[in-house]
Computed example of a mutant assay.
Amino acid sequence: MPADPVSKPRTKPAEERRDELMIAAERLFLEKGLEQTTIEEITTGAGVAKGTFYLHFASKADVLQALRARFVQSVLDGIVAAIEGRGQEDWHGKLAAWSTACATGYLDAAGLHHLAFVAAPPATKEGLSRNILIDHLNELLAAGAGENAWSVDDPGFTAVFLFNALHGVVNQPGIGETPAARAQLLRAIEAHFLRSLGLPSGMD
């Protein structure tokens, strides 16, 4: 039988290469800081040629913006999964799940959030008044009001108010560092979300 032809190495999909660059950049940014990290270090960490970087990103700032977007999407994915675990008519549970999943997402990636939004903040603060997390909470509040689960005059305003309250709490230095402290924090956030809609909190 003829020998098998030598297999040629397969080129990784562009999305996989981009993800590897982002993973390497995130690790280096957290270890060394944005300014101290070089593009060559990022490409070495990702195991690609330096020129490959520019096929996916224009600069380190471009990578940071992609990390911001991925962070927020990851938090939203966790929220959606948590809400899907609740019954169709369990609006109380959905709101509680939203607050807990959102807070958990921030706490689990506190280092990345601080890097991407505090140490090197975006050019504008629009994200605190409009982002996919606020949009999702707005939709949840409006849907619950439509089903008479709660009364809310302005779901959009309330979503911004609640998101920023949660955001401020979870970004306090040293917050929720032990399992017991985190559990207590999550219960308190959930209780405040529920009370704001006139729902029993379980802590009353």
Rank of each mutant, 00 (worst) to 15 (best):
P121L: 03
Y54E: 13
K32H: 13
C102L: 07
L137A: 02
G174C: 07
L107S: 01
Q36A: 15
G85T: 06
L185V: 06
N138Y: 05
L199D: 01
G156K: 05
N148Q: 12
K12R: 14
E190K: 14
P155L: 02
T44E: 15
G93T: 08
L162S: 02
T44Y: 12
D204P: 04
E40I: 11
I39P: 07
G105Y: 00
A159Q: 02
D135S: 14
G127H: 11
G87H: 08
L30C: 07
I134R: 06
P121S: 04
H92S: 05
L115M: 13
T158N: 00
G146Y: 13
L128Y: 07
E84I: 03
E26G: 09
Y54R: 12
L64K: 09
A14K: 15
R195T: 10
A14H: 10
L162D: 01
L115R: 06
V80D: 12
F117E: 08
E20L: 14
P2I: 11
L28N: 06
L107E: 00
L115I: 04
A116M: 03
V170K: 00
I175R: 02
G111V: 04
R195C: 05
L185W: 09
A123G: 09
H92A: 08
G168Y: 06
E147S: 14
S74Y: 09
G111W: 05
L112G: 02
A110I: 07
